[in-house]
């Protein structure tokens, strides 16, 4: 029955919907296609001006040159992103646990204030933050940049974990307390093992945010410590010599690759983590 019904629905509406989706898809994917095609072309081929044609001669020279230029910045980005993501996710989980399961006087107020952090634009904190980093002796260091990203990410990760843990039955915590478990034991043994979906959400979110960040990177890091986003900008905006579009495109692809991979491999958790209920009572 259901089969024949859905087959009947394969009518004008269905076709219209799919056509719309295909068009939308193309709109989003054509720039990516142009980037990929251009990155594999020779400079002469690029200058010939046919954006959407296949390369006359497939070549990796763009990629090799791009990698040579941005390689060290690529690792810089990793050195910034990995600790920032892990630390902010971990502290966010701890915050969310404390705020949802050990509510104390003023815990709701504290949570509201933390939420406020989600809405503060980056630009607003640039000056006070650079002042603070200077005082801490962390100006222009990778550690300083990690600190900035951890603090900025905490508002989001705390929100994720707090809302996830609110759905965990309180009885579970009570049972563990009577079993003799303390604050941290309950966190490690009971809650964290339940948290895979929301940990995934937090990791993906933070990774994307930190990796793609340009503003903090350009302000709080300098010279050889800059992240790849800044390096890419410098590469593309050089005014000397002929424009090497194939190198620019390859470098942009390299810069975007990690976040793409994270979405491809963990994306299903992202949707699942944001939509699933936690545990049934």
């Amino acid at each position: 029955m259901a089969d024949s019904l859905s087959r009947k629905r394969l009518s004008f509406n269905r076709i219209a919907i799919h056509a719309t989706l295909l068009v939308a898809c193309a709109v989003y994917l054509v720039p990516l296609l142009v980037m990929l095609l251009t990155s594999f072309k020779t400079p002469d081929d690029v200058r010939a001006g046919n954006l959407l044609t296949l390369p006359v001669e497939w070549t990796l020279i763009g990629w090799v040159k791009a990698w040579d230029t941005v390689q060290s910045y690529f690792w810089n980005s990793f050195m910034i992103t990995v600790p920032a993501v892990i630390i902010s996710t971990f502290i966010g989980a701890l915050n969310g646990y404390a705020l949802s399961k050990w509510s104390f006087k003023g815990s709701n107020l504290l949570f509201s204030l933390l939420l406020f952090g989600c809405f503060i634009p980056f630009q607003v904190i640039l000056l006070p933050m650079s002042f603070t980093l200077g005082k801490l002796g962390l100006a222009n260091t990778t550690a300083g940049l990690v600190l900035v990203h951890v603090i900025y990410g905490l508002a989001f990760t705390t929100l994720f974990f707090r809302n996830y843990y609110v759905g965990v039955p309180d009885a579970l915590i009570k049972a563990a307390r009577l079993d003799g478990a303390g604050f941290f034991t309950i966190f490690w043994k009971i809650l964290l093992p339940l948290s895979t979906p929301i940990v995934m959400v937090s990791l993906i979110w933070q990774f994307t945010q930190v990796w793609n960040d340009f503003l903090f990177g350009v302000v709080f890091a300098s010279g050889s410590a800059q992240p790849i986003t800044v390096a890419l900008n410098n590469l593309v905006n050089t005014s000397t010599g002929a424009k090497e579009y194939n190198v620019d495109m390859a470098a942009a692809m390299i810069a975007a690759l990690p976040t793409l991979l994270v979405y491809i491999f963990a994306g299903k958790y992202f949707v699942r983590g944001l939509t699933s209920g936690v545990v049934k009572g």
């Binding site: 039955p169 009885a171 579970l172 009570k174 049972a175 079993d179 003799g180 043994k189 339940l194």
Partner: peptide
């Protein structure tokens, strides 16, 4: 609570969902 030496059975059972029955009892 952990020092009171009291055990409780909850209406919702409150079994630790990620642990096996054995681990639940042994926790």
């Amino acid at each position: 609570p952990k020092d009171r030496d009291i055990a409780m059975v909850f209406q919702s059972y409150a079994l630790y969902p990620t642990m096996t029955v054995r681990e639940n009892i042994a926790f």
